[in-house]
Amino acid sequence: MTSPIIKSSALRPLGDGPRTVALIAPAGAVLPERIEATCSLLTQMGYRPQLMDHARARHRYLAGTVEQRLEDFHAAFNLADVTAVWCLRGGYGCAQLMDHIDWQHLPDVPLLGYSDISVLLSAFHARGRRALHAPVATELALLEQANGVTREARAASMASIASVLQGSAGHMAVTHVAGPDAPVEGPLIGGNLTTLASAAGTSGALHVPNGAILMLEDVGERLYRLERSFCQLLASLALGRLSAVCLGSFVDCDTGDSSIEVMVQEWLAPHDIALYHQLPFGHGEHNQAWPVGRMARLAASGLDWAPE
């Protein structure tokens, strides 16, 4: 029987424009069954999934060699009538591509993903290209398998992609933790904390414009590792350019008797930078899409980004 999710008119993650979507694996290797399920679900939704040639490849824990992943990356953006380039998963490996991307021959097609994809999203932002911090494509399979409130949350997260792709205004609920509580405005940046910290000092370092609102999330890390990454990231940035830090989910992160909020607050306090948390993005069922680089307003009433 066809899944109810497939029937849902709300689940049009890429909108109603051109139907071709390129699927790439620029980082970790992807399970074959996840690939097959993702392509099948996209087809049932009326899309034309174009799985790139090396998406099933494996080199150690990576989705192929650097050369294979680069070939797929460049080819995906040059497909005819492609709506978006959607990463199948994160993992590790995107930073290996940074010094080899041929930006001059890369059409302006939006890139979708999160986690390890954060490095690429920031690079796109730095070059004025469209990038969405959004669920990866294989999470369609997780959505199909989910039930109850988890299913509803995953469906809402997938459905949020379309409005961001269309350039619409958006909103996320927030909770103020510490620091100045006056409204601030600036471009949205960030992504996975561990990934961004590891790229500090390299060609994939986080792009930080003035007034930036730094969005962070992570998964499966002990608190001391999160602190190590946060200190590394902060030390690599011009802190005067940050207007606020917003924390999404930190799934399966062992924080012991402390919390990620307390740790981050301690390091931000000397710099008088506002801290907010409980934003609905990151690893897990609540992963609302947001536009990297889009101007936004942050206040106790929420995070609101302007239309394009």
Rank of each mutant, 00 (worst) to 15 (best):
Q278F: 10
P280G: 09
C253W: 07
C253I: 06
A235E: 10
H271G: 01
R241C: 05
N287H: 10
N287A: 14
F281T: 06
H286E: 11
M263V: 10
C253Y: 06
A238V: 11
D257C: 07
T255A: 13
A235K: 06
A244V: 02
W290K: 04
C253L: 07
D272W: 01
M263D: 10
A274N: 07
E285I: 10
N287F: 03
L237H: 01
L237G: 01
V262A: 14
S259T: 14
S249F: 08
G256Q: 12
E261K: 12
H283W: 10
L242Q: 03
G240P: 06
H277P: 04
A238N: 15
L242C: 04
H286A: 09
I273H: 06
S249L: 08
C253S: 10
W267T: 03
S258N: 14
E285F: 09
L268I: 05
E261I: 04
I260N: 13
V245Y: 01
E266M: 09
Y276E: 02
I273V: 10
C246V: 15
A289K: 02
E266K: 12
S259A: 11
P291L: 05
E266H: 11
Y276R: 05
P291N: 03
L234D: 00
A269D: 11
F281A: 07
V245L: 01
L268N: 10
G240H: 01
P270I: 05
L233S: 04
E261F: 00
D252A: 11
A235T: 05
V264M: 11
V251Q: 15
A235V: 00
Q232D: 08
N287L: 05
A289W: 01
V251C: 14
A238Q: 15
A238W: 02
A269L: 09
L279K: 07
R241P: 00
P280M: 09
G282P: 10
E266T: 12
H286R: 13
W267D: 03
G248L: 01
Y276T: 01
N287D: 14
L233H: 00
W267V: 07
V262I: 12
E261A: 12
P270Y: 03
D252S: 13
S243M: 01
I260Y: 04
A244M: 02
P291D: 05
P291Q: 04
L239W: 00
V245W: 00
L279C: 15
M263E: 12
E266S: 11
A238I: 05
P291S: 07
A269V: 09
Q278R: 14
L242P: 02
P291G: 01
S243W: 00
L233Y: 04
H277Q: 12
I273L: 06
A244H: 01
D272N: 13
P280T: 10
Q265L: 03
Q232F: 00
E285C: 13
L247W: 05
W290C: 03
